[in-house]
């Protein structure tokens, strides 16, 4: 099964993948630290002299947070002042790092991951910015559609008496949404992978169309890969907020829970790098570029005769 070996290639990501994951993780860590430095300073200023503030340390003191909001209106505005800039900066960094990761994943010379990374970043960042525009639309869809879905579910379950019906509806709407999101995100990802692999021979727009066609032709494995990594990230975040975060509530475990949370973020970064590498690997395994099918070409390329062996990654690339 090609998609499984591609996923395996993604996970066994070698030095290159480790580099990407580390960069993803560090960037978010440093930027979020920077973004909240002013807030930290402000909080120290207003809380350090107050013995009452101790309950805030253990997840309590909601009323004290209220006091801060009412009596220190400047605190939050100033404290979060850097946040918009951080997000803007992050979007730029994220583009560069993502481009570098795609470039690195497609590279045939994994011995120079650092150089490949920057080569990819230089070549791909600008075209990938186009994905950003699509993402804005996508984000719109992923906020508007669930909101509509939620309203739909609320309307549908109104007065409902059967648990099975309610959870059935929730599950139905939820999985429909998930599949939509996976298709959208998968199409973009395979478009990016295709453009990365095509060298300079195919325009970015064309690559996106071909990537979409590719993921629609192989809808089960393509959406499957996206969903698999999505599920991994969901587990990391679920664990982060529902299993690890409560450690904050018990003083002694606060540090341990923070360390574990960073572990979850690292895992999420690793999953992202692995997902990109799996996409590139899967795209490459079909070697479509070699035969250059037209957009919307018949799915005969899936016929067994058309199969070509997936190029194995260099052994040095699977160290990790």
């Amino acid at each position: 099964m090609r998609w499984m070996s591609s996923v395996k290639n993604g996970f066994l990501c070698g030095r290159g993948g480790a580099l990407s994951a580390a960069l993803f993780y560090l960037e978010a860590f440093l930027l979020s630290s920077m973004a909240l430095a002013p807030l930290g300073a402000g909080l120290h200023r207003v809380l350090d002299g107050s013995p009452e503030a101790l309950s805030l340390a253990s997840g309590g003191g909601a009323d004290l947070l209220g006091e801060l909001a009412f009596n220190q209106p400047g605190l939050w505005a100033a404290g979060f002042g850097l946040l918009p800039w951080t997000i803007l900066l992050h979007v730029v960094f994220a583009l560069v790092l993502t481009a570098g990761t795609y470039g690195l994943a497609a590279s045939d010379e994994p011995r120079h991951p650092w150089g490949d990374f920057w080569k990819g970043a230089l070549r791909l960042t600008l075209p990938f910015a186009g994905v950003l525009a699509l993402n804005v639309a996508g984000w719109g869809a992923v906020t508007v559609v669930p909101a509509m879905a939620l309203m739909g579910v609320a309307k549908a379950v109104e007065g409902s008496t059967s648990s099975a019906a309610v959870w059935g509806l929730v599950a139905g709407w939820g999985s429909a949404l998930l599949i939509m999101a996976a298709l959208f995100k998968g199409s973009l990802g395979f478009g990016q992978a295709r453009y990365t692999l095509s060298g300079k021979e195919e325009g970015f727009g064309r690559s996106l169309l071909n990537g979409t066609a590719f993921s629609l032709r192989r809808v089960v494995p393509a959406a499957g890969i996206t969903l698999l990594f999505g599920a991994g990230r969901f587990l990391a975040f679920w664990g982060l907020y529902w299993v690890l975060a409560p450690g904050f509530a018990t003083g002694g475990r606060a540090l341990a829970s923070m360390v574990l949370q960073q572990g979850a973020f690292l895992a999420a970064a690793y999953l992202r790098a692995a997902e990109i590498r799996a996409q590139v690997s899967y795209m490459r395994s079909w070697d479509e570029l070699a035969r250059r099918p037209a957009v919307g070409a018949p799915a005969d390329s899936q016929a067994p005769g058309a199969l070509q062996p997936a190029p194995a990654l260099d052994s040095s690339d699977t160290l990790l």
């Binding site: 993803f24 340390a57 990938f128 995100k185 606060a254």
Partner: peptide, 29 residues
């Protein structure tokens, strides 16, 4: 001498939220 624990803990919590947001943004790039 306040230990600064409440401010540190509160900031750490909020930072987790911001960092989580940034990490999620990666997935849509």
């Amino acid at each position: 001498e306040g230990g600064g624990l409440p401010a540190r803990a509160l900031k750490a919590r909020l930072r987790t939220v911001v960092q989580g947001l940034l990490v999620m943004l990666f997935n849509w790039m």
